[in-house]
Amino acid sequence: MEETTLAVTVVVPSLLAKVTGDQRELRVPVEDGATVAQVLDRLAAEYPVFDRRVRNELGAVRRYVNLYVDGEDIRGLDGPATRIGPGQELLIIQSVAGG
């Protein structure tokens, strides 16, 4: 991802960092009015395996993946249509099942 001041910081969990070149933070260029889905689309173009781990084949966020814009769960906002702008943070948390 290119470095720019008009960017969203995407925080990647350690489980997914191996498919982003071991990067835990990605800067994704955005314009005002961008959505979480558009940020994910930009990431998908550069990291297709990452995208398959975050979204299903229909483009929906997988149920075990939680996305937060500045600490707010997008499920309580507008989902992937949630607006996100320059300077904001998109935190991705991938649930881990076990027992």
Rank of each mutant, 00 (worst) to 15 (best):
E2P: 10
E2H: 12
E2A: 15
E2V: 15
E3M: 06
E3D: 11
T4L: 00
T5E: 07
T5H: 04
T5L: 12
T5G: 05
L6M: 07
L6V: 04
A7F: 08
V8Y: 01
T9G: 07
V10H: 01
V10R: 00
V10M: 03
V12F: 04
V12M: 04
P13W: 09
P13S: 15
S14E: 13
L16A: 10
A17D: 03
A17L: 02
A17E: 04
K18F: 13
K18C: 13
V19I: 11
T20H: 02
T20L: 05
T20D: 04
T20P: 02
G21F: 09
G21A: 11
D22L: 15
Q23M: 14
Q23E: 12
Q23R: 14
Q23H: 13
R24F: 15
E25Q: 14
E25H: 03
L26F: 01
L26G: 00
V30D: 09
E31F: 03
D32M: 11
D32V: 13
G33W: 12
G33Q: 10
A34P: 02
A34I: 03
A37K: 09
V39W: 03
V39L: 10
L40D: 00
L40H: 01
D41H: 00
D41V: 00
R42Y: 00
R42C: 00
A44I: 06
A44S: 13
A45T: 09
A45I: 05
E46F: 06
Y47P: 02
V49P: 00
V49W: 00
V49T: 07
V49C: 00
V49D: 01
F50Q: 04
D51S: 15
D51L: 11
R52C: 07
R53F: 15
R53E: 14
R53Q: 15
V54P: 07
N56A: 08
E57V: 10
L58P: 00
L58C: 02
G59T: 09
G59N: 03
G59P: 03
G59H: 04
A60T: 07
A60C: 06
V61M: 09
V65C: 09
V65E: 01
V65M: 11
N66K: 07
L67W: 06
L67K: 05
V69G: 12
D70C: 13
D70L: 12
D70R: 03
G71A: 11
I74W: 03
I74R: 01
I74L: 04
R75S: 13
G76H: 05
G76F: 12
L77P: 00
D78I: 00
D78S: 14
D78V: 01
G79M: 08
G79H: 04
P80H: 06
P80V: 15
T82K: 06
R83P: 08
R83N: 12
I84A: 05
G85N: 10
P86G: 13
P86T: 11
G87L: 12
E89S: 12
I92W: 05
I92N: 06
I92P: 03
I93P: 01
I93L: 14
S95T: 13
S95M: 13
S95F: 14
V96E: 02
V96S: 06
A97V: 08
G98R: 04
G99V: 06
